[in-house]
Design a protein around this nucleic acid. Sequence first.
DNA 1: CGATTACTTGAGGCCTGTCAATGATGGTGG
DNA 2: CCACCATCATTGACAGGCCTCAAGTAATCG
Lengths: 242, 242
Amino acid sequence: MVTSCSNCPLRKLDAFKDISGAELTFMDRFKTGELEAQPGTEIMAQGQSSTHLFTCLRGMGLRYKTFENGHRQVIGFVMPGDFIGLQAGVMSEMEHSVEASTQMALCTFNRSDLWTLFKSHPSLAYDLTRIAALEEVFLGEALSVVGQLDAHAKVAWALQRFFTRLQAVGMGGDNHVPLPYRQQDLADALGLSLVHTNKTLARLREAQVATWVGSRLTVHDPDELAKMAHIDLATVRKRPLI
Amino acid sequence: MVTSCSNCPLRKLDAFKDISGAELTFMDRFKTGELEAQPGTEIMAQGQSSTHLFTCLRGMGLRYKTFENGHRQVIGFVMPGDFIGLQAGVMSEMEHSVEASTQMALCTFNRSDLWTLFKSHPSLAYDLTRIAALEEVFLGEALSVVGQLDAHAKVAWALQRFFTRLQAVGMGGDNHVPLPYRQQDLADALGLSLVHTNKTLARLREAQVATWVGSRLTVHDPDELAKMAHIDLATVRKRPLI
DNA sequence: CGATTACTTGAGGCCTGTCAATGATGGTGG
DNA sequence: CCACCATCATTGACAGGCCTCAAGTAATCG
């Protein structure tokens, strides 16, 4: 049973931009199907091209790069509404891998239809560019955090981002969200060791600011968390959904 | 005296993709003029929108974000052929600032014409998306380097990237390129202190691998440099020029 | 119920930051 | 023409944040 783009549950959310009826109709043709991915599955692989592009419909995953020496950098976390494979779409291949952390449902598109999208629906093309620019903004912020902040602020920033992003897509209650990652994932995202990440999380827990236990992140003091993250208030942007 | 896009000296370079005559004609109309920027000048400011977009024609600059606590993260370095202001173009505002390090010549475009570009020239829109994706790739790589490598490898990576990128745009001789930045800029890009960056550069110099003195970077041993940078050989991509 | 995976906690060491002082260079004004 | 100042590069000493090593607990699974 495949949900049509017109009935997409994500599109009802406030976090995503509205699009016109004509574009919705195109999207329904653009979408070729759905794909279920099991936890631990690699959805796209670094250095490979792909005939398919995806949008995350349900579930969560992560993007990462691996070095030849075994080190891993988590580039970002994939959540409902995220587009996957833009790099494979407009360049020869992906520069990072994408892996499912939970079970995921993905909308699939044909890469070969992308050019049609650009030719016949410039507003969708514009949205796609905006998505790329948003990704660029996020990476710039991540780079800044990893480069300039200490471990305490790094972890606070990550939790803050998780919280607001997941709230925006309607997951979780008023002071908690699901967070089905491992501490190792967070450590690899922030350029910290697992041990130090663990100890930093413990401090945040003891300070009654945020508690991340068993796939659930509870934020007791959002203001304090944002303050520790050294970020001027979260520019929550409406994002295009493709 | 404004150079037309058809005669753009950059377009002759091997580093940039060719485009069709029709698109060149459009580019000539799209380009509204040129702008000279003096060293130290802020070209675009973090948090502001802009009516103009730019392409770097000559000279070099840098992109950076500043924290409220005064820390600065250099997001990237601007070189000839780089597009500036995509974020301001497709979103409300820039998330980082851009500043001239040397005197710069910039081609200027009207932001309001961007939509026309998307509507009438899908292949240019495609190129623009590709530019955004390339930026994303670079930031992902930078994030990985800053997050995972030690100071020695970080500096080696940066010098390696400077060298190949500047060679690609035809600046410098066969074993040297101009590098008109300050050590502080590099330190802020890599998340290192100025002092440690300086000492690391000294080690690379003593090891006869690369020497960066007085705005000139000389690479004595490219292979060793790439090896120290822990990067599987530099995917040198042709990039779109807009 | 042994094996596996993830989380937790302590101890010790090193990489890198901070502080501080000196040198080198270039621009400016008396 | 030289004293003065500002900017940037260099070098040494010292401290601390974070990493590594190591061991133990908890939870899940076949």
